[in-house]
């Protein structure tokens, strides 16, 4: 049984250690916050906040308090606010221990593409290029194949890159993979998912 979105998020939460400052991307990565349990994790939102709290109760939304996905959120008793230049100072400066983000494609050398489909999707990279350039550990959480069933773990990315050689670990619905010398290494597979199935759905070299 492949993992569902919540199981992928729960698996990604295992990557986080007590005391870490972490940036979570939009989509499945946002769900990771639900699975950190008792670990002391501080969430960074790159629009200028450390110590991001949960969504507000209805009627308590504050237009001055949003996350990087533009959603209303709340603060905690540990929260700090800062401007965008300071925010990316901590991101580029290597102060953020881990970033968990989505992807369109990942190559076997750790190249990442997640910001643009030429002629189709022109939204922009937001903070993704800064995050992958500066954060110590970059974990990608994504479906193993696209809607058409094509591999997303490739020998080389076909879409415009977000960063080169930046991805450390990939968590898909089929398993967990590390970027190592020569290709991707299977760390674990989802229950009842075989290595043969993983290989059949992966273009990247599996070592």
């Amino acid at each position: 049984m492949p993992w569902d979105r919540n199981q992928m998020a729960a698996r990604a939460a295992e990557e986080l250690e007590d005391g870490m400052y972490v940036n979570l991307g939009i989509g499945i990565p946002t769900l990771v916050a639900n699975y950190v349990g008792d670990k002391d994790i501080t969430l960074q939102s790159e629009n200028g906040m450390l110590g991001m709290g949960p969504f507000p109760y209805e009627g308590e939304e504050d237009p001055d308090l949003i996350n990087a996905g533009k959603q209303t959120i709340t603060e905690l008793n540990r929260t700090s606010y800062f401007d965008s230049a300071t925010s990316f100072g901590m991101i580029r400066g290597g102060k953020i221990a881990a970033a968990i983000l989505g992807a369109m494609e990942v190559a076997e050398n750790g190249d990442l593409a997640n910001w643009m489909i030429p002629g189709k999707l022109i939204k922009g990279m937001g903070g993704a290029m800064d995050l992958v350039a500066g954060v110590e550990k970059v974990v990608v959480v994504m479906d193993h194949t696209n809607k058409a069933g094509d591999a997303k773990l490739l020998k080389a990315c076909t879409l415009p890159l977000t960063g080169t050689g930046v991805v450390d670990r990939i968590i898909t619905d089929l398993g967990v993979f590390d970027v190592v010398e020569g290709g991707l290494k299977i760390v674990e597979t989802a229950p009842e998912v075989t290595e043969d199935e993983v290989r059949a759905k992966t273009e990247a070299t599996i070592v």
């Binding site: 969504f55 507000p56 949003i66 533009k70 959603q71």
Partner: peptide, 15 residues
């Protein structure tokens, strides 16, 4: 006006 782009809330039952 301070318009909110994406109002996102949780229900009190979740608490």
């Amino acid at each position: 006006e301070k318009r909110i782009e994406k109002v996102t809330t949780r229900s009190r039952e979740d608490a």
